[in-house]
């Protein structure tokens, strides 16, 4: 019997080794995460204050704050959402409620949206520059940047919206039909509210993607760091501010650290809220079934 014993102990050793490797890999990933976060917090804390959040940048951003930059970021985001939300959710409603998933239009729409999700952000930047800034004559402006971002957000909004609507039980639709409700009323007053958590999660994910975006905005919303006067002014978003400070401004690292900390904090809060929403929504769904 000694042979079987040795085979078995080899198996145990391999098992141990695999477990060790997997745990080390997981540890490495966590360590990298903590490393990045602690670097940013350590570098940014000293420079961060209320004044930093509200003051205008001075001396190309080396001193002063990020007030106008936050305003531009919010404006770009608002433009993007104003366009992308109705378009995205209407598309989701059509795909989930009106056309069959395997039909010609349904599959074509899904195919092209998935393709859109795969397009690199720098390509969106090129397109936005050629189409919105030059062809439609918006120039380097918050409007042009926001519209470019809207194109990027569409796939996320459609896919989360569609998934949310499809998760609403069919009994809701049948009951509404039995009550004689029109399809419009069913959609507006029953299905969309029932899918609200999923729509909200998609919205949060979209906001997260939008404020993280740099490459698509470089040649659409531009670099100008003044307080924007209108949507046709150029405005610098927070992500571009970090890029500019770290690449083009020597001695801008302290401000860049603080700006990165602000951006990361906003994104962490948004992501945690989105994760909470989807988790809560899944739990409720399981309970109700």
């Amino acid at each position: 019997m000694p042979e079987t014993v040795s085979v078995k102990s080899a198996g145990v050793h391999r098992d141990r080794f695999a477990q060790l490797t997997v745990c080390i890999a997981a540890f490495l990933v966590c360590a990298a995460f903590v490393w990045i976060l602690s670097d940013l917090v350590r570098g940014g804390m000293a420079h961060l204050s209320w004044n930093f959040l509200f003051d205008a940048p001075r001396d190309a951003g080396r001193a002063g704050g990020i007030g106008p930059i936050l305003v531009s970021t919010v404006l770009v985001l608002l433009v993007a959402l104003t366009v992308a939300l109705p378009l995205g959710w209407m598309t989701a409603a059509l795909l989930a409620e009106y056309v069959s998933a395997d039909g010609t239009f349904g599959s074509a729409a899904r195919y092209s949206l998935q393709m859109l999700a795969a397009v690199p952000s720098i390509v969106f930047g090129l397109f936005g520059n050629a189409f919105f800034s030059i062809y439609l004559g918006m120039g380097f402006s918050i409007l042009s940047g926001g519209l470019t971002l809207a194109c990027m957000l569409l796939p996320i909004l459609v896919s989360t919206g569609e998934a949310g609507l499809r998760a609403v039980p069919d009994a809701y639709r049948l009951s509404a039909a039995a009550l004689g409700m029109s399809r419009k009323a069913t959609l507006l007053h029953l299905l969309l509210p029932a899918a609200a958590p999923s729509l909200a999660a998609g919205l949060l994910l979209g906001i997260g993607r939008a404020i993280a975006e740099t490459a698509a905005l470089l040649f659409t919303s531009g670099y100008v760091d003044r307080m924007p006067g209108s949507l046709l002014d150029s405005g610098r978003t927070l992500a571009i501010h970090i890029f500019d400070l770290s690449m083009n401004v020597s001695g801008g690292d302290a401000s860049a650290h603080a700006s990165a900390l602000v951006l990361i904090t906003a994104l962490l809060l948004i992501n945690i809220a989105a994760i909470r929403l989807t988790a809560g929504w899944q739990r409720r769904k399981i309970v109700s079934e």
Binding site: L87, L116, S182, R183
Partner: peptide, 28 residues
Amino acid sequence: ISSPSASADARMLWLLRGAAGTATALVL
């Protein structure tokens, strides 16, 4: 909300089609 109206439904459908068509054509 419970008053069924065929024309409102049809208008709604065209609106949705318009939106979805725009979204689909974007990649092109």
